[in-house]
Nucleic acid binder design. Sequence first.
DNA 1: GACCTGCTGCGGCTTG
Length: 821
Amino acid sequence: MSASPSPNLLRRGDDWFTGRGWTAFPFQHEAWKAYLDGKSGLVNAPTGSGKTYSLILPILLEFLKEHPDDPAKANNGLQAIWITPIRALTREIQAAAERAIEDLGMKWRVGIRSGDTKTGERTKQRNKPPEILITTPESLHLLLASKGYEKFFSDLRVLVADEWHELLGTKRGVLVELALSRLRGIRGNAFRTWGISATIGNMQEALDVLVPAGTRERIIIRAKASKETEMITVMPDEIETFPWAGHLGIKLLEKVVPIIYESGSTLIFTNTRSQCEIWYQRLLEADPDLSGAIAMHHGSISRELRDWVEDALHQGTLKAVVCTSSLDLGVDFRPVETIVQIGSPKGVARFLQRAGRSGHRPGAKSTIHFVPTNSLELLEASALRRCIENEVIESRIPYIRSFDVLVQYLVTLAVSGGFRREEVLKEIRGTFCFASVSDEEFAWCLDFITTGGNSLGAYDEYHKVVRDEEGVYKVESKRVAMMHRLSIGAIVSETTLMIKYMSGGYIGAIEEYFISSLKPGDTFWFAGRSLKFMKVKGTEALVKKSNAKKGKVPSWRGGRMQLSSQLSAYLRKSLEELKLEDYHDAELLKLAPLRDIQAHRSAVPATDELLIEYFHDREGYHLLMYPCEGRGIHEGLSSLIAYRIGQFAPLTFTIAMNDYGFELLSDQPIPIEEALGSDLFNLTELTADLNAGINATEMAKRRFRDIAAIAGLIFKGYPGKQKKEKHLQSGSQLFFDVFTDYEPTNLLLQQAYDEIMTFQLQEARLRSALERINGQTILFQQPRKATPFSFSLIVDRLRERVSSESLQDRIKRMRLALVRE
DNA sequence: GACCTGCTGCGGCTTG
């Protein structure tokens, strides 16, 4: 059926919606109204709730209102841009939009502009823009880098940022902010901005970043119906034999098998790609009947194989898929029935997002099984449960002053028509990210792209942009323009090798350093297959099928997720309940025997206590503290404490940390009591001591690699011919050193240090952690041997230093030492 | 009796 279009359609909206078998929710009506009133805003709705229609429809309806007699009018120019963080979502949105257009009897076209869009299609789009264009932040910037883009955008009335919570808090979000500032510059008041976001802790800020105050009237629209989530912890039968350390979780594997059988379809989330590979194999070993019924999915597996898995899941031919966060977003599955999370999700938002992949219908309950991988994760389960009950959820902290992205953007504009200083400065100051940029800083950026700045002036290749007589900044060199288009974006990946069969066929990607640990003929497992490594050819690692049952499992250097501050706070509460034997949930009750060992050998801290353990064994003198603040904070805190103790005695420490605490290990006695008596946690000297204690230069140097790549200092190579990691590393280090020596005020260099303070050491959070510790009672314990709390720290440290074979020996020896005592 | 850590996302050329 094709509803006859009418300006009154909104009022008859219910009929039209139910006619299609959809339900119209109050929040959708609210969004339609706000949109048609000319507002900008943010729609806060879960996936599966019809959030796309909450914004597609009013865009169409507004046009119909303006052209009631000519709904089929074609060639209206580009009316709306829809941004998504991942390409796979563009097709879904296109389908939804086309459905709505057809229902209204309109003739609008919906185009996709992404890396998948063919050249011919791109040309067509440029000559005759679709009314709705669905794209990614990167592709939008590529459009800004093409000649005559102003004309292309000249009819635009709205930009919708879908899954805005995914982009906020990333440099890709900064790309969106910058593109928006330009579109507002072109279209002025005729332009609206809308976002669609899942619930996060800082909803208002999410709106402020997307739609700066003062641009238009703004509103946040919330879908009221909150999703019910049931969390089921998979319990070890007896805590006595459950590991105190480790993150693999195989011990509970046999309890996961029945979960798979009881449900039509299951997603099993793991935290790392290697864990994903291992679980897939182990599940098949545990139950060969699952062969053909389960598959795996992670980011290093080729797109082709992943598509196959996604399709099979969609069609219901697979019972379960073991995956990483590669399936957090993306393909709109036929609702998956059951979710399993192996190991700590480290954050409430991530856990709920994964849970939400089940019961993917409005009103349906989501169910998630949590599989702890070690004893302390039962504590996290309890904390997680409380966070869900109290609707505590993490925030996404937006980047500010990302000069690398700004510099890239300026060159992007210079590649197309060129830009004028005052105009662009005014626009970027309207963004959240660059509101505080001073005249001098902006002048530095212009200098940097025109002359290479103070330190690179001698090198022509950094004179990318010229300023002509009329004051327009533009790129004149075709080569510079091309290389720039090739490097637009804010994602910097590890360089990888493609895994290919000798006979052809691409399976996935693997990191250089893993392949360098293999000899030709070695077997390894990848994508659930046993492969024999043959040789490296260019950027390809060639392999053959193997029948070997044993082999290495690759590991990748990914990001380290750390416990969120929200979850950390609840973890400390759970600890207190453990101490008080206030067992309000099954997880804590299960931990009772472990609690007794900890309390007997040492102590369990309450929320107003800081536990410090100090003991001596054949390894040396161990000093352990448990602030339970998450790994990043412990990284800063441990260096700070090590530095301050070092003021009393010239000691060398080996430092280890995890989400619960940190360890300082020394071969000499540690004057801890003296140190504790001396205001060890004082805040006054924090910045100075931190700078003295950490190796900020080393940390900043690593961080600088990405900054240099985004700012266009390092060319990553032509597509399919990427440069070796070694070259990228040494290139960025060279720049780092040159800037440090000759231009210490270089904004990119400073940015590297700022990012360390903001994201890695999290100075603000560190400060409040110290404040909290200063108000706590110190619980100083001298256990005779390792405690349950200390165990995972000690094992982690051992693992970092030695190979896994000898790790077994080490642990065996440790155990013997424990027994002997 | 305690161990196999480390996510995701995008984009794109030339010349034979």
